[in-house]
Amino acid sequence: MLTTESIDQILTSIPARTIGLVGDLFLDRYLDIDAARNEPSVETGLIAYQVTRVRSYPGALGTVMNNLAALGVGRICPIAVIGDDGEGYELRQALSRMPALDQAGLVSAPDRRTPTYTKPMLEEAGRPPRELSRLDIKNRTPTPAALETAVIDHIERAWSQFDALIVLDQVSEVDCGVVTRRVRERIAELAARDPNKFVLADSREQIGKFRNVCVKPNADECKKAVSHPDTPDQDEEGLFTARCLELVRTGAVRAVFGTSGERGIYLARTTAPDGVEGRFVPAYPVSGPIDICGAGDSCSAGISCAMVAGQTYHDAAAFGNLVASITVQQIGTTGTASPAQVRQRWIDVGKFCS
């Protein structure tokens, strides 16, 4: 059970911990557009939007990194591939502002593009900014074998330094991102040899292909991973929990942290000697408007911080829920949670629940 003492233990332990990350590192670029300055293009007659400010942040794997830094992790070591391009330069600038970050594992590849989400934000008088159609830059060809080898080499060299490893497979196109089949298999081999190291994997399309690690799927990702027949007496929640249990029952993964929005996390894991059990770790109550952007990444950061501080799976899930309950209340931004915010939120939760 999560307590004030366990929260203090987590927050005071993690400045001495090193957490590694492997996966797809994106640039999130926001273009602030002033609608009052719009002008017609001389050449086409179309509206020429006038950008008044460019804001750049590390996205995807970078969102998890930002949450780890905000919580106070002492050393953060990402392993990723970015392009030798303007977006890559922009991304490195954004990363340089992040405390505790070691960029030694970033591989710069001249034949790959830096994955980028460009988000035009239209500002109109008397109205909140609204996002126009997003522009995406991604690599849609398979990751070259030489880059896979470079990523694997970085993982192998740094493995012993990591207190935990977070794996984020953001790219939907198979084997076109950082976490390819070869990379996934090597992580499985290393994790099998070192069962005490906590490894947490998150993947949009391939969660069912991870081995010897913990996984954090949502309902849609579970459905892609596990073939479970629909039955008349099971609702969506019942199917979700059944799929989480099935992921563990196969013996492929150590535990499942199944995220289920306001319900919280469905934690499924093996029991001695060969059983399987699951239970919901409830989310903490939130009032008012919410913004779920980045909530899953903040939850991953919270779970991993609790695990490297020696907490149980259950208490790690509860701490992940607590962190996410802070970030979802930060509207219009990809939120983070500081130690002070975590402690205050715990006090507020106690008042709300008493």
Score class of each variant (00 low, 15 high):
residue 255 A to C: 08
residue 255 A to L: 03
residue 256 V to H: 07
residue 256 V to Y: 03
residue 256 V to S: 07
residue 256 V to I: 06
residue 257 F to E: 12
residue 257 F to S: 09
residue 258 G to H: 09
residue 259 T to S: 15
residue 259 T to W: 07
residue 259 T to D: 06
residue 260 S to I: 04
residue 260 S to T: 00
residue 260 S to P: 00
residue 261 G to A: 15
residue 261 G to F: 09
residue 261 G to T: 05
residue 261 G to E: 14
residue 262 E to N: 15
residue 262 E to A: 15
residue 262 E to D: 15
residue 263 R to H: 14
residue 263 R to A: 08
residue 264 G to M: 01
residue 264 G to K: 00
residue 264 G to P: 03
residue 265 I to Y: 01
residue 265 I to V: 15
residue 266 Y to P: 05
residue 266 Y to G: 01
residue 266 Y to W: 09
residue 266 Y to E: 05
residue 267 L to R: 04
residue 268 A to D: 10
residue 268 A to I: 04
residue 269 R to S: 10
residue 269 R to L: 10
residue 269 R to E: 14
residue 270 T to D: 10
residue 270 T to C: 02
residue 271 T to V: 14
residue 271 T to H: 02
residue 271 T to G: 08
residue 272 A to L: 09
residue 272 A to P: 14
residue 272 A to Q: 13
residue 272 A to Y: 06
residue 273 P to S: 02
residue 273 P to W: 04
residue 273 P to V: 04
residue 274 D to I: 01
residue 274 D to Y: 14
residue 275 G to M: 08
residue 276 V to K: 11
residue 278 G to E: 05
residue 278 G to A: 05
residue 278 G to C: 07
residue 278 G to D: 11
residue 279 R to K: 03
residue 279 R to W: 13
residue 279 R to N: 12
residue 279 R to A: 13
residue 280 F to N: 01
residue 280 F to S: 03
residue 280 F to C: 02
residue 281 V to T: 14
residue 281 V to N: 06
residue 281 V to Q: 14
residue 281 V to I: 15
residue 282 P to I: 07
residue 282 P to T: 08
residue 282 P to F: 06
residue 282 P to H: 11
residue 282 P to W: 10
residue 282 P to C: 06
residue 283 A to H: 06
residue 283 A to R: 00
residue 284 Y to F: 12
residue 284 Y to H: 06
residue 284 Y to E: 00
residue 285 P to Q: 00
residue 285 P to L: 12
residue 285 P to H: 00
residue 285 P to W: 01
residue 286 V to R: 09
residue 286 V to L: 04
residue 287 S to C: 06
residue 287 S to E: 14
residue 287 S to N: 09
residue 288 G to L: 11
residue 288 G to P: 09
residue 288 G to E: 11
